[in-house]
Each structure stands twice: as C-alpha cells, then as structure tokens.
C-alpha cells in the first residue's frame, strides 16, 4: 500500500501552482535554488513520515 498520496489532492491546482511561481518571481537562479531547498525541507518536516518521503523521491526520480 502506498503511503504517499498520489491521487488528486488539491482543490484548486492553479492557485497552488501560482503560489509557487509567485514565490520565485524576481529571484536569481541561486535565490530560487535556495528557496526551493528551504521549501522542500519545510514540507519534509510537515510530512514527517520517512516512507512517504522515500516514495515521493521515487516519484520525482521517475
């Protein structure tokens, strides 16, 4: 059984995607990389479950 939610889970996907792009607006490549890294670590902590994180990394690597 998958621990990671891989079914549709966000009510308004366009809003979520827009939040991401807006956060990066006006940033240099280095600043964007740093923001992404902080965002991943923050979400890691929210998820907390190593199995979910492992599966998410697998999805991202495919």
């Amino acid at each position: 059984m998958s621990a990671l939610v891989t079914s549709r889970n966000i009510a308004i996907p366009d809003e979520a995607y827009d939040l991401l792009l807006t956060a990066h607006e006006g940033l240099t490549k280095d600043e964007s990389d740093a923001l992404n890294a902080r965002l991943i670590l923050t979400l890691f902590n929210h998820v907390g479950d190593l199995d979910v994180i492992r599966e998410a990394i697998e999805v991202a690597r495919q």
């Binding site: 990389d33 740093a34 890294a37 902080r38 991943i40 670590l41 923050t42 902590n45």
Partner: peptide, 23 residues
C-alpha cells in the same frame, strides 16, 4: 553545489524555526 544549497537552507531555516535545527 546542491548539497551546499541544502546545507545552507537548513542553516537559514534554523535561525527562526526549531524544526530545522535537528538537521
């Protein structure tokens, strides 16, 4: 380069957020 980016992200977050400090 990317491991430096993550390292510095941890240090940056740790200043204000306790959750990042164990990293």
């Amino acid at each position: 380069e990317i491991s430096r980016v993550f390292r510095n992200a941890v240090l940056h977050l740790s200043r204000r957020h306790d959750f990042a400090r164990p990293f």
